[in-house]
């Protein structure tokens, strides 16, 4: 990259690309992928052909995939060198989101499991010091 075009080394998130055809095609491809993933999500949730306990995990994976499609095709977050700042900010956001969600769910599930007053817990005589 020469000094001359280094003015264009960054792009703003959400900024469409150059030619009108490639821009529109990008949005249409994104829409098609999002429609497919949404359709598969609703099908997976409705069918009985799949192994029950795995369905919820599959739905979460499909949702994450669809979020990726939206980020790439609608918000134009790419792996290009002009997008480094946007990607790094996104990576930090994703880190915090996962910490908050997984941390909360993990801790609260264990808290619930450990707080239930079972008969053994209420019988103080039977507990060892």
């Amino acid at each position: 990259m020469s000094e001359r075009d280094s003015d264009f080394m960054n792009v703003a998130p959400g900024e469409p690309h150059d030619s009108i055809l490639s821009e529109t095609v990008a949005y249409v491809v994104g829409l098609a992928l999002a429609l497919i993933l949404t359709g598969v999500s609703f099908w997976v949730a409705s069918t009985s052909a799949l192994w029950g306990p795995g369905v919820a995990v599959g739905l979460v994976v499909l949702a994450i995939a669809q979020m990726g499609v939206h980020l790439v095709f609608f918000l134009h977050i790419t792996s290009g060198p002009d997008n480094t700042n946007n990607v790094l900010a996104l990576a930090f956001g994703v880190l915090i989101v996962f910490l908050v969600m997984i941390g909360t769910i993990w801790i609260m599930a264990h808290l619930a499991a450990n707080m239930g007053p079972t008969p053994e817990m209420t019988n103080l005589m039977a507990q060892r010091g």
């Binding site: 996962f98 908050v100 969600m101 909360t104 769910i105 609260m108 599930a109």
Partner: peptide, 10 residues
């Protein structure tokens, strides 16, 4: 929103 999702899941 992640905080709201976490409390919903809990």
């Amino acid at each position: 929103f992640s905080a709201l999702f976490a409390s919903y899941a809990s």
